[in-house]
């Protein structure tokens, strides 16, 4: 997968952040953290499916599902005391939701650095979101390899 193109969903989220002055972007990230969907009931007892994102300081686990129609659904769980991490997961879960596997794999790896948060949350913290994205893409690759 050598070409990259940004799906409209993630481009929209990026623009939402960039339209805000820097000091208001944390508030938007907080809103995202509050919108992180709960894990579907069918997946709640399936800790075995989830992968720990080691790049994040807080315990966050992701599971990316590629359904029968080859559409992507990312599920994530992170504690309430880790709102930054929840916000990152929520952006990716919302942004990847319903994309085809091919569209999701074309998301640029440096998307997290493009949404105007690097300075407000720090480069080290944004690296956690990059780790999350790369792991999600790897899961998609594994699940679509035949």
């Amino acid at each position: 997968m050598s070409t990259t193109s940004l799906p409209a969903s993630l481009a929209g989220i990026r623009d939402e952040f960039l339209e805000l002055p820097e000091n208001e972007r944390l508030q938007l990230l907080l809103e995202f953290s509050q919108e992180l969907p709960a894990i579907p009931a069918a997946l709640q007892d399936r800790a075995d499916l989830y992968e720990r994102v080691a790049e994040c300081q807080s315990p966050v686990y992701i599971f990316v599902e590629v359904d029968a129609g080859s559409l992507v659904h990312m599920h994530a769980t992170a504690p309430a005391e880790a709102p930054t991490t929840r916000g990152f997961a929520s952006i990716l879960a919302q942004g990847l939701e319903g994309l085809t596997a091919e569209e999701a794999l074309s998301v640029p790896d440096d998307y997290p650095q493009s949404i105007g948060l690097t300075r407000v949350v720090s480069p080290l913290r944004i690296a956690g979101m990059t780790g999350m994205l790369l792991r999600a893409k790897r899961q998609i690759r594994e699940k679509t390899a035949s």
Binding site: L26, V121, L124, R125
Partner: peptide, 22 residues
């Protein structure tokens, strides 16, 4: 805090935030 957003979720009344990273 370690988490740069935790203060925004609720803090001691009157407290100001100082983030070590930023």
């Amino acid at each position: 805090d370690e988490d740069v957003l935790l203060y925004e979720t609720g803090h001691i009344p009157g407290a100001v935030k100082v983030d070590w990273h930023t």
